[in-house]
Design a protein around this nucleic acid. Structure first.
Lengths: 149, 149
DNA sequence: TCTATTTACTTGCTTTGTTAAGTATAAAAG
DNA sequence: CTTTTATACTTAACAAAGCAAGTAAATAGA
């Protein structure tokens, strides 16, 4: 049962490509939806994190939204120019700036919530809620694997 | 059983981010390995596709390697400069060029095969071959979903 | 046969990813 | 109290992604 399966080495059955393809399938419709607001996937992730978790420092945002800090710096600059987020200095640690979503940013998220929910609900129904949950569990377990030796 | 789960809408449990994180975990070690040959993940995917499936036109490569055509155009230009791939005109359709892997390209793939296999075997053992198979099946099913209505 | 449409890329432009280096502040060590 | 060392970003530089527009060849339609 722990024998290795040579087929897993072929690209058409490889985990990295399977993850890419699945992501493309899920994100495609969401990207299309966001394009109408002139926003992309990364900005969307940042805004959603801030909406759900409240004001955060940048390191925490980067981790939650799966972005590197240099990317986040630029994204936040753009979002701030569009008045979708705001920064305030941390009074206790002046290296940090605490980022929060603005009413305009919240409005942007809200304006897509219904359609976003619809897409997810459709996915759940077509794929099966239980199987989706199983998939999320497997992905989370995979993320926590230690492959270092 | 087909009720929608509101938690799936939160970023910390969202499918797109879970796919990103899992991909990062799997590809990290492979990227490190490839860095020693001055090659990246995309070039690796292209070379593997060509090695496994033989000479292909670019649209087919793009689909198999999960790349957009503009990216592929530039990747192939680099690979051709390094003599890892070669192009020949399609005699029947002069819009197409048929791309194939060169002996040097094949050698590059071969030189990483053992280490690549080791990484995959380790993943299989730590994650469980059966669970990995299950994950691949779920991902493949997800990819084939039609979310258009 | 001539035009319109589709296909198969290619090019240009902007944003993002990635690595490395830099700056400012905080915490730890001596 | 002064000197590392670590933390939290920011900037710079370059490769890559992604979108839009462009080109050339093939196909379809009038």
């Amino acid at each position: 049962m722990t024998q290795s399966n040579p087929n897993l080495r072929r690209t058409e059955r490889s985990l990295p490509i399977a993850l890419l393809r699945a992501r493309e399938r899920v994100m495609g419709p969401i990207r299309d939806m966001l394009a109408s607001s002139g926003i992309n996937e990364q900005k969307w992730r940042v805004l959603r994190v801030l909406e759900e978790q409240g004001a955060l420092e940048q390191t925490a945002i980067a981790q939650a939204a799966c972005l590197l800090l240099p990317s986040l710096t630029r994204i936040l600059r753009n979002l701030e120019e569009d008045d979708l987020i705001a920064r305030q200095e941390d009074s206790k640690d002046r290296r940090k700036s605490i980022v929060s979503i603005t009413p305009a940013g919240r409005h942007l998220i809200d304006s897509h919530a219904a359609q976003s929910d619809l897409l997810l609900t459709r996915l759940e129904q077509k794929f099966g809620a239980q199987r989706l949950n199983e998939l999320l569990n497997l992905l989370d377990d995979l993320r926590q694997l230690d492959l270092s030796d």
